[in-house]
Amino acid sequence: MNILVTGSTGTIGSLVVQGLAAQGASVHALTRNPDKASFPAGVTAVKGDMTDIPSMRAALKQVDTLFLLNAVVADEVTQAIGTLSLAREAGIERIVYLSVLNSDTYTDVPHFTGKYTVERMIEQLDLPVTVLRPSYFMQNDARLRDGLLQGRYGMPVGDVGISMVDVRDIAEIAVAALLRRANAPTPLPREVIEIVGPDVLTGDALATLWSGVLGKPITYAGNDLAAFEGFMAGIMPSWSAYDLRLMLARFHVDGMLGKPLAMKTLAGLLGHPPRRYRDFAAELALAWQAN
């Protein structure tokens, strides 16, 4: 059992590497710069890049299980489809793919529709894949530190509500799915798992929650997506800022909510209730105070 983890140095990929290593799995961590990467003892750093086909062919020949995580980049679909095709070429029949909740309905949001294109390939070819569809990450809000400390919650998530998920829950479910597939005597059927948090959070609700956590009044900055896009375009490529704007526009109309039985299903997969946003916020506030 050898498992290749792509995105191995990122927020979720690094947790997946750690979780697999802790379970004694043989982990190959794909990275562009093995000399600079830091992984747990026993993890094999593998030099590779999903835009470099020879390096991916070599990396996939060493494993029988794949965790496919693509960064949100302009050529994400090319990277994902190419890697899945190479995995088929290598005979890999144990795969977990990280998609996104509402990938099938947010057709006007580039990185959502890109991930759904990958899902369509998986479905059409009936590949033995667990597709994980997580909601918006709680940890994204760590970037709001300065605004929150100044009394403002600045992410324009809207008034319908989103069920944010802790990345630690995503990683735990990914690890369990990878081990379940890796240890199965024959390839398991294709499946889709939606991963959400237990709370429906609006912009106003998040401001109120942070007021309690920080012990001071926090106001919601509002739903001005044009202003948000303009700010984000100053710190990231304009295409990415617009992609985020389109996602948030869908939050304003449709929200990002889990199905009625999601909590029971996820608690069974995790072995504990999904983590709550308030607990995440309290942890973050303590870390900010320590620094």
Results as ranks from 00 to 15, higher is better:
residue 13 G to A: 09
residue 16 V to I: 12
residue 20 L to H: 07
residue 30 L to C: 05
residue 36 K to A: 14
residue 37 A to S: 14
residue 38 S to W: 01
residue 39 F to V: 05
residue 42 G to A: 07
residue 43 V to Y: 11
residue 50 M to I: 02
residue 51 T to Y: 08
residue 53 I to F: 02
residue 54 P to I: 10
residue 59 A to T: 02
residue 59 A to P: 03
residue 64 D to N: 15
residue 69 L to C: 08
residue 72 V to L: 09
residue 78 T to C: 01
residue 81 I to T: 10
residue 85 S to I: 00
residue 91 G to M: 06
residue 94 R to C: 01
residue 95 I to P: 00
residue 102 N to K: 12
residue 104 D to W: 12
residue 105 T to H: 08
residue 107 T to C: 04
residue 108 D to E: 14
residue 109 V to I: 11
residue 110 P to I: 10
residue 112 F to E: 02
residue 115 K to Y: 08
residue 125 L to F: 14
residue 125 L to V: 03
residue 126 D to I: 03
residue 131 V to T: 15
residue 132 L to E: 03
residue 134 P to E: 10
residue 140 N to K: 09
residue 154 G to S: 13
residue 160 V to K: 14
residue 162 I to A: 14
residue 165 V to H: 02
residue 167 V to L: 09
residue 167 V to N: 09
residue 168 R to F: 03
residue 168 R to P: 00
residue 173 I to M: 01
residue 174 A to C: 04
residue 175 V to Q: 01
residue 177 A to R: 06
residue 178 L to V: 06
residue 183 N to L: 11
residue 185 P to S: 14
residue 188 L to H: 06
residue 189 P to I: 12
residue 190 R to K: 12
residue 193 I to Y: 06
residue 194 E to F: 05
residue 198 P to Y: 10
residue 199 D to Y: 03
residue 207 A to Y: 09
residue 211 S to P: 02
residue 211 S to L: 04
residue 213 V to D: 03
residue 215 G to K: 12
residue 219 T to G: 12
residue 221 A to T: 03
residue 221 A to V: 02
residue 223 N to Y: 05
residue 224 D to G: 07
residue 232 M to R: 13
residue 236 M to C: 10
residue 247 M to A: 12
residue 247 M to S: 06
residue 255 G to D: 04
residue 256 M to R: 08
residue 256 M to P: 00
residue 257 L to F: 01
residue 257 L to S: 05
residue 257 L to N: 07
residue 261 L to I: 04
residue 267 A to S: 15
residue 270 L to V: 03
residue 271 G to A: 02
residue 280 F to M: 07
residue 280 F to A: 07
residue 283 E to S: 11
residue 283 E to R: 14
residue 287 A to I: 09
residue 287 A to N: 07
residue 290 A to T: 09
